[in-house]
Design a protein around this nucleic acid. Structure first.
Length: 497
RNA sequence: GGUUCCGUGGCCGAGUGGCUAGGCAGAGCUCUGCAAAAGCUCGUACAGCGGUUCGAAUCCGCUCGGAACCUCCA
């Protein structure tokens, strides 16, 4: 079997994965900022790394998957000013940060459940780790790589860059940065334009604030990930994931802080997923082209022709390699929806097929083909998690399953061993590794019973050539959104649209 | 402007030197009371121009077009 290879953003090449601690993997993924609702673009990293997590587990690793919740920072809820701290409104009228954070955290968890992503092992919050962050900043100051100015603390990038390769991860040259960094608020108190904040003094209207050795303030954007990753995964850990847009300055800064603090480069393998684009442009607030997840699921958005099931989105994302951009479009989503439906139906049919021995029916070519298609799946995933290729192989298996189900191909064309292998692996790959689920609720016992009754009546009618009755049943059900299909051999199957 | 990356058939997308994924849409056929599924077959694409090579979508150069980051960002 092939070795797992991961494209490391740091070295810009695929590397064979070797965990620091045998049998274990420590993985940190940058989580959501819960000051607003997640949009389609946000779903990409969480689905991508969910599959990474699932596949590593499949390989037998014990994975500690840490994904943070960013609930501290410069908070304002959309359409609401952050001046509440000094306003004269009553307490209950004011924006309470934790209330907002709770609301969007809940919504995020709900969306992740819709996508059938597994929960991280630890989901630490930034506000819950202020102490760790302050301790880390203290260490960096003591090491001489940070300085305090008017209640804020900045990281000395120039000093760091003199000794370490600042900019290597993001392919940046410090001199260029000094030239091109734009003017921002508070820029003048930095010693150098490239320096970044570890701790920021809170202005009076800033509603999230904590006491620190440097006065009342709040942590800088990058320090939370360094502090929490160190705490839960150690100074040096295996995988750090996130969107490509976080390469600079976020991850570059993380490396710098952690290295000074812990005297070691924090991450072995940096993984970055590419963006979801819309008309070729990244989906993002500043482009005014976001489609929120609730809108995706409900279809309530001018760009959407219909509602899309979370599983359709998950499948849509997995059909592309995670390092490629993925262009949003109704046509593409619709294609994903139909494709997933066909794949899932074949998969459910497979579990209903009963194997019957028949030595004469054995077809070695087909048997070998199935073995090959399944064995390749692991190789594809081992090659930097190529879910697109995995799905292509699964689709190659679909017509074979359907033909066996329709008995156009005898089940015994496959050896018992291969058939069992097929059943077992389809389940493993579809459900456990790709994390797909059925997108309707056909597995309701009562509904099953009612449907079976209708099917029996329709069968009777058909046998009497009473097509008026049989068509009535099928048409009425269709109006309700249930499709009834006649199958070869006289059986019927049904499905909720 | 700097850094990095990309440009594949109607659409979405794999693919890094020869064996020319896959999904969806489209066409034809089979099965079928009809329908829906399903099965079979078909389309022969790699921005343009040069170069390297026996051979390039895949390597090199140039041109054109697009994107990401440099600012909050998945």
């Amino acid at each position: 079997m092939s070795d797992l290879k991961i494209y490391n953003s740091y070295s810009r090449q695929k590397e064979i994965f070797k965990p620091i601690t045998a049998g274990h993997v420590g993985m940190y993924v940058c989580g959501p900022t819960v000051s607003g609702e997640s949009h389609l673009g946000h779903s990409r990293p969480y689905i991508t790394f969910d599959v990474v997590n699932r596949f590593l587990t499949h390989l037998g690793y014990k994975v500690r998957y840490v994904r943070n919740i960013t609930d501290a920072g410069h908070f304002e809820e959309e359409g609401r000013e952050a001046e509440d701290k000094i306003s004269k409104k009553a307490v209950l009228e004011k924006l309470e940060p934790m209330e907002m954070v709770q609301k969007y955290t809940n919504l995020f968890h709900w969306a992740m459940a819709q996508f059938n992503t597994l929960s991280p092992s630890i989901e630490p919050t930034a506000t819950g780790h202020i102490v760790e962050q302050i301790e880390m900043i203290k260490k960096i100051i003591a090491a001489g790589y940070a300085y305090e100015k008017n209640g804020s603390v900045y990281f000395d990038v120039k000093k760091y860059a003199a000794e370490y390769d600042y900019g290597k991860l993001s392919g940046r040259v410090l001199d260029d940065l000094l030239e091109t960094t734009r003017l921002l608020e508070g820029q003048d108190e930095k010693n150098d334009k490239a320096d970044f904040a570890l701790w920021k003094k809170a202005s009076p209207e800033h509603i999230m604030r904590w006491q620190s050795p440097w006065g009342i303030g709040f942590p800088g954007w990058h320090i939370e990930c360094s502090a929490m990753a160190t705490k839960y995964l150690g100074a040096e850990f295996d995988i750090h994931g996130g969107g490509m847009d976080l390469l600079f300055p976020h991850h570059e800064s993380e490396i710098a802080q952690s290295r000074i603090c812990n005297h070691v480069a924090p991450v072995r393998y940096w993984m970055h997923n590419n963006m979801i684009t819309i008309n070729g442009k990244k989906m993002g607030k500043s482009y005014n082209n976001v489609i929120k997840l609730t809108e995706m699921f409900s279809g309530q958005h001018p760009l959407l022709e219909k509602a899309y099931h979370p599983m359709t989105i998950r499948f849509f994302i997995l059909q592309t390699h995670y390092r490629s951009t993925l262009d949003f479009g109704n046509e593409a989503l619709l294609a994903a929806e139909k494709g997933l439906k066909r794949l899932w139906e074949a998969y459910s049919k497979l579990s209903n097929i009963v194997y019957e021995e028949n030595k004469n029916a054995f077809d070695k070519t087909l048997d070998d083909k199935i073995q090959k298609l399944i064995n390749e799946l692991t190789d594809f995933m081992n090659d930097d998690f190529n879910t697109a290729k995995v799905l292509a192989n699964l689709f190659d298996i679909v017509p074979i399953i359907n033909s066996m189900y329709d008995q156009t191909i005898p089940v015994a064309a496959l050896s018992k061993k291969t058939f069992d292998f097929l059943q077992k692996n389809m389940k493993e790959w579809m459900e456990n590794i790709l994390g797909l689920t059925s997108f309707s609720d056909e597995d309701n016992d009562k509904l099953q019973g009612v449907m079976q009754l209708l099917i029996d009546i329709r069968k009777e009618a058909k046998s009497k050539k009473d097509f008026v009755t049989s068509d009535k049943i099928r048409n009425k059900l269709q109006e309700l959104g249930i499709t009834l299909k006649d199958e070869k051999g006289g059986d019927m199957s049904w499905q909720i649209e």
